[in-house]
Design a binder for these strands. Structure first.
Length: 742
DNA sequence: GGCCGGGGCATTTTT
DNA sequence: TGCCCCGGCC
């Protein structure tokens, strides 16, 4: 513990030890950013800072957890328990719950996740009888989100002439009104969306100097990870907390800012000095992750962007091999090519499946890749797919729990008021909601005393509402007596959910049931873990607080399993892999078609590409396909101009031997070495060949039936790798093999 | 109230 | 191609 400083290079150590004022650490990719942050905290602890006086903010739960674990493994375990380390959202949720009375919220207020917000916006648009083709819920949602991130409240939004004019020009002049209604409904429901957490924190600190002062004195040191990703709301919270004592330490990399579409503002980092004039700038420029070639290639790429903090990232690792660019004729073949490449490298014995990541720009690209992996019997895991807590059956149960904690939670209530079906249908719910709106009450208030609201609902339905209300009275009473997992089990049994699941004997139904079991297990595990940490009174609200801010990334159960990683480039930020394949490097795909009119967006896409490349430790591959199924139709595309942004000397272009080619192409394309660099000449080739393709089922005289895995050329002859059902894998020259397509 | 099929649609998304 | 939403139908 004493000589941890030995494990740092000079720049890292200097940043860790510097204690005379605000610090901005610009940390190049792979330069030991997390290490510096953890050691800084350890250093602070050793210098006498109490754990609870250190506030360390991250963007993901995972980052916080990993940092905590690292600190715990180096220092005393108990210390980390009292650190205020977590995501912006979780830390300030905690504070807002504690200070709820100052902002007019109940302390058990709940969180609306993105889909709750969207549903609420949808229903408001409907209630206002607006056309949802013009007032697109997703667009309105992002307008509201951006406004909140910039600390523009509904009132300020409507009062801002520029915004109003803009909305007018976009033909959505009533956006301000939707925002206002949305906000009122959230307040009525005792709920905040993600952005509201940060907005309300600012309001809390702005309007309650005593509260702000309390936290300023508590958080004697403020640290922020990934500072380039902060939005204005986050930046201002950080500033408010640290401007007095100036003990602030932020780390980030402007070259990896890829979330501006979510409100992240790189200027927070670039102009850090304006806010903290005495700040000292530290640069971490030695990359410990990647080969020299990868670092140099990435540098040559990012140089094409303008306006960044000057830095020279370098590597003293091995020189390494060039980035290989590989082309295919279709997305389908690209996927096979990638699978083959992975198999080839695994066969070399140096790598296992978990040493590979396939990164892509859009989630839609995962499907073909997945298929190829499956066919080639490779283990893989796709990230970014639906997270456990997003599944319907889980959300349903969570909704019950949310209503127990906060019955005014309209979105949760709506979700379960007729699930399982209990005869309270859409028509009835609409009547209840409009009664609530008219009386400025919450949906729950209407349900509790329907008689007060002059409802046009028949007595049979009113009875059903009464039964539903009584059920929740019971749940609420029981929850006071039971542990977190007991109450969940009680709800599952007594709400009709269990009966509903039991009635479903399909495969999906069984898996839903397993997921419910898993949730109950996770809940008791949560209680046990909290007990071990010394917290005895674990409330249901505590559990909900945790799960409402959890994402897919936090829930990797088989983390240790040996699997290939498939994910978007965005999701890969902060991770590293021995071998990275960046797939689909094509025009209009990467950079995204939507970015091409805007130089700023192109620069962000280029940073995204930079992030992708710098995930690789040993080898990086870039692949592109000349045709790809996009939105249901085949489309022709060329290689992305981003490939040309990388200096030629760091790249090699795959020789055709390495490409799984359709045999016919070989005669058509004598020079595949610089494949695709010139514009396409053979768009119609698809129709001119009736040959073998990877994936084709074939029959062989001796080996029986099998499937073509890859096609390649060996000394000018087409050779197929075929997986035979009974004879295993064989490599055969097509001109001798006499294969028959079946 | 729930199921089926047609039409419209389709970046990225730490929380 | 596949998902989501809506309208029509039972």
């Amino acid at each position: 513990m004493t000589d941890f400083l030995q494990q740092l290079n000079d720049n890292q150590r200097e940043a860790v030890l510097y204690d005379a004022g605000p610090s901005l650490v610009v940390a190049g990719a792979g330069s030991g950013k997390t290490r510096v942050l953890t050691y800084k905290i350890i250093h602070l602890l050793q210098s006498g800072y109490q754990p609870h006086s250190i506030l360390a903010l991250t963007f993901t739960n995972k980052a916080a957890r990993e940092m905590k674990d690292r600190i715990a493994s180096i220092t005393d375990h108990y210390l980390t328990r009292y650190l205020w380390m977590g995501t912006f959202h979780s830390i300030f949720y905690r504070i807002l719950r504690r200070e709820a009375q100052h902002i007019g919220y109940p302390s058990d207020f709940t969180i609306y996740d993105a889909s709750d917000s969207k549903n609420l916006i949808k229903s408001i648009i409907k209630e206002m009888q607006l056309n949802d083709k013009i007032y697109k819920p997703a667009t309105i949602q992002s307008r509201i989100s951006n406004a909140k991130n910039a600390l523009v409240t509904a009132k300020a939004y409507a009062a801002d002439a520029d915004i109003m004019q803009y909305d007018e020009r976009c033909k959505v002049p009533l956006t301000a009104e939707i925002y206002n209604k949305y906000q009122n409904r959230c307040v009525k429901a005792g709920a905040m969306d993600f952005d509201e957490l940060l907005l309300q924190t600012n309001i809390l600190f702005r309007d309650n100097p005593a509260v702000l002062d309390k936290y300023r004195r508590q958080f004697r040191y403020v640290l922020v990870d990934e500072y380039q990703d902060t939005n204005f709301a986050q930046h201002l919270i950080v500033r408010r907390l640290s401007e007095q004592h100036q003990r602030i330490f932020v780390v980030g990399d402007d070259a990896q800012s890829i979330y501006s579409f979510r409100g992240a503002n790189i200027d927070n980092m670039l102009r850090f000095k304006d806010n903290f004039p005495t700040c000292r700038l530290f640069k971490l420029e030695q990359n410990y992750r990647s080969t020299q070639n990868i670092v140099d290639a990435a540098n040559s790429l990012i140089k094409k962007n303008t306006g960044q903090i000057p830095k020279t990232v370098f590597s003293e690792n091995e020189k390494g091999s060039r980035i290989q660019v590989l082309s295919s004729y279709s997305d389908y073949e690209e996927a096979y090519l990638i699978a083959s490449k992975i198999i080839e490298m695994m066969d070399g014995g140096k790598y296992k499946a978990s040493d590979f990541a396939v990164l892509y720009r859009t989630n839609a690209q995962s499907r073909v890749l997945e298929e190829a992996m499956r066919k080639r019997m490779l283990n893989y895991r796709i990230y970014g797919s639906q997270s456990f807590y997003q599944r319907k059956e889980i959300k349903d149960i969570i909704a019950y729990l949310r209503v127990i904690i906060n019955p005014h939670d309209e979105e949760a209530l709506r979700r379960i008021i007729n699930y399982p079906a209990r005869g309270i249908g859409e028509t009835t719910v609409n009547k209840l909601i409009s009664a609530a709106n008219n009386a400025d009450a919450s949906l729950w208030e209407v349900i509790s005393v329907p008689a007060n609201f002059n409802l046009q609902i028949n007595s049979g339905t009113l009875n059903k509402i009464g039964t539903f209300y009584q059920m929740f009275r019971d749940f609420r009473l029981q929850s006071a007596e039971m542990s977190v997992s007991e109450i969940a089990g009680y709800v599952v049994r007594n709400s009709g959910i269990l009966a509903d699941l039991d009635g479903d004997l399909t495969v999906e139904g069984m898996s839903r049931k397993e997921n419910v079991q898993e949730l109950l297990r996770a809940m008791s595990e949560f209680v046990t873990m909290r007990r071990e940490e010394g917290n005895d009174n674990i409330s249901l609200a505590d559990f909900l607080q945790e799960v409402s801010l959890m994402t897919d990334m936090d829930n990797q159960k088989d983390d240790k399993a040996d699997k290939i990683t498939l994910m978007t480039v965005h999701a890969a930020k902060g991770l590293e892999f021995d071998n990275v394949i960046v797939a689909g490097m094509e025009d209009d795909l990467f950079p995204s078609m939507r970015a091409k009119d805007n130089p700023r967006d192109i620069e962000e896409e280029r940073r995204l590409f930079y992030v992708a490349i710098t995930r690789a430790k040993d080898n990086c591959f870039i692949t592109y396909a000349k045709t790809r199924f996009r939105n249901g139709a085949p489309c022709v595309s060329g290689p992305s101009f981003f490939i040309n942004d990388i200096d030629r000397k760091f790249i090699s272009f795959g020789r055709d031997v390495e490409l799984p080619q359709r045999t016919a192409y070989i005669t058509f394309r004598p020079n595949v070495t610089n494949a695709g660099w010139d514009s396409e000449t053979e768009k119609n080739i698809e129709h001119e060949t009736e040959n073998f393709h990877p994936g084709d089922r074939v029959a062989h005289n001796k080996f029986g039936t099998g499937e073509i895995i890859t096609l390649e050329t060996a000394n000018g002859d087409a050779m197929a790798t075929i997986l035979f059902r009974n004879a295993g894998t064989k490599k055969l020259l097509l001109k001798y093999a006499k294969l028959k397509k079946i």
